[in-house]
Design a protein around this nucleic acid. Structure first.
Lengths: 340, 340
DNA sequence: CTGAAAGCGCTTACAG
DNA sequence: CTGAAAGCGCTTACAG
């Protein structure tokens, strides 16, 4: 230990931390000696062990980092979290809950966790963290005891959106959903998939739409991207055979998917909204929509992140913040209209 | 310590880590006891202190997290880093080098650091980390001893781009640069600013363009965003007075800025490229450009990140990977043409 | 194969 | 105001 520098021992700790009383003289002597020995202050690891605090907030992404960064909602949420955490803290530690990732959640160093989406695969990690007294906040997803919840009215908003489509007069409607589980491939939406679904947001948005269209069917996209929406859109619109009627409206569970569906429609020679109504979800203001203004449910994504960040701060300070609830707003764009 | 559960003491450590020899019987006994006592394995803090490893890689952003997430290049780079790190590791710890942030760089727990841009304000942090034997990798920016460098040919690429504009016949050209220092506001580009600049990428891209247009002047944008490009574009195009000639081409130092400049031009009734040539830098494929296809220097952003991630992995394994150099490619779009 | 001992580098009460 | 002691929870050689 570089402390032997001056003459003192653990008084050096006081010199660096600034906590406790120390004479200006010795303090200066210690700092000068440290400088000469090129000692730059306490080792973060030891300090965090002793103090029981690292200053790090773990942010657990549902998806691989790669996908998360491509999702404007996730980015807005991260934005919001970091706004509230400030840079005083150690920073945000990005973790994923996919597969092997679980182990890293359990073995990583952090003081509090924010889950972006909370699914059953986190059950064990949550148990571990609860046992370690690590405060947890979940943005949407399933509720767990001891995990503060930041919720969005996915179900009700989806109902309102579907009602808008219904009110326009559409009766042949299809849905393009977000992934329903760990399977990441394009599939027809079946009741088996619905029954076994693990992704709360997708389930809630589907359930909400089915309040209006009870038998709503369609496709499960491989991921929330414009390309995956395109692929799903082609299937939803390109079907053929006896008795099948092309939908006059498609409800996409995200704006990215909606953009892809619009591209698919246009590639098939259909006009939006003349031949097809397309609605999205998120209010992500995706560019590249040319002259379309997407009809969508706008969610306060940054606000969700900020609420989570504030909750973490309060929990770490020993407080007991309440759960938070956010509401979506219908944005009437130019991609929805009565059927021809 | 829950280890008293069975009968053994530190043998439990072996049971959990899997390293060392242990009989199946005692091992099982220990795990069962741990389960009953709700002990879920070693405390990450203590483990990291003892092992000298946390599994965390610090990623130091030049800008506030908020801005970084809005920059497609930064996101692509983060993407690339995370691809190579895999989720075996503890994860990426996001830190910022802005103001107070420096202290968090020095007090945060991580095993290796990746700097996204390396400026003088990191000097002290680099010294601290060098002294602590923490491997460092810098993506672009100034060179520091002991910091592995992942470089981009900003200067040469900027020259090639300017040469393209010159070859088209443009002689009245203005530049809209990225921020040159910590000042984040729109300003006319002066030689004082250039002399005191601290942001390597902006300086290199300017120097490169000045190889072709030695006295190139223009504006320094407040940030790399389409809105800031718009504001700068208005100034660059809206000037008036004796002897002033409106530029026939604007070189923007990022695609985001270029998009804003195009919007500014169009809002002034100028057509691109008929009345004004606009070129960008990055190849970020920003949507929302309507029917324009931006002429720009495309940089391998994800590749830069992957190279950094690989380098970190090798450094942590005790290897000595070489510096990496990447090259931009000119993309000829529809926003550059000969002057009217 | 298993246990006792030392120590990772710090900080926190506790005496002096 | 300063120093000596204990301990944060683990892991790593080292004996048995």
């Amino acid at each position: 230990m570089a402390k032997r520098a001056g003459v003192s021992a653990s008084t050096a700790s006081i010199a660096f931390s600034g906590v406790g009383s120390i004479s200006e003289a010795t303090r200066e002597r210690i700092l000068r000696a440290a400088d000469e020995l090129r000692y730059f202050g306490p080792d973060p690891r030891a300090r965090s062990l002793r103090q029981g605090r690292s200053g790090i907030v773990g942010v657990v992404l549902e998806d691989r980092v790669i996908h998360s960064f491509r999702d404007p909602i996730t980015i807005a949420v991260l934005d919001g979290i970091s706004q509230e955490l400030g840079n005083e803290n150690g920073g945000m530690l990005l973790l994923t809950s996919t597969g092997m990732g679980e182990s890293s959640i359990q073995s990583a160093v952090f003081d509090a966790a924010v889950f972006l989406g909370c699914s059953p695969r986190l059950t064990r990690s949550i148990e571990v963290m609860r046992q370690r007294n690590i405060p947890m906040v979940a943005i949407e997803g399933q509720h767990f005891d001891g995990v503060l919840s930041v919720a969005l009215d996915n179900r009700e908003a989806a109902t309102r959106l579907a009602q808008h489509v219904y009110d326009l007069g559409h009766r042949d409607v299809a849905v393009v959903t977000l992934p329903m589980d760990a399977v990441r491939e394009l599939r027809a939406l079946t009741e088996v998939i619905v029954a076994d679904a693990t992704t709360a947001v997708s389930m809630e948005r589907l359930a909400g739409a089915r309040e209006v269209y009870p038998k709503l069917g369609g496709y499960v996209a491989a991921n929330s991207s414009s390309d995956d929406g395109f692929a799903a859109g082609l299937l939803a619109l390109g079907g053929a055979g006896g008795g099948w009627r092309r939908p006059t409206a498609i409800i996409a569970q995200s704006d990215l998917l909606a953009v892809g569906v619009i591209r698919a429609a246009e590639s098939l020679g259909l006009r939006v909204p003349g031949d097809l109504t397309v609605v999205g979800f998120d209010g992500a203001r995706i560019e590249g929509l040319s002259d379309h203004d997407l009809t969508t449910m706008v969610q306060p994504a940054t606000e969700k992140g900020r609420a989570a960040g504030r909750a973490v701060t309060e929990l770490l300070a020993g407080g007991h913040p309440p759960d938070a609830h956010f509401t979506c707003t219908l944005h009437l764009g130019t991609t929805s209209a009565p059927p021809a």
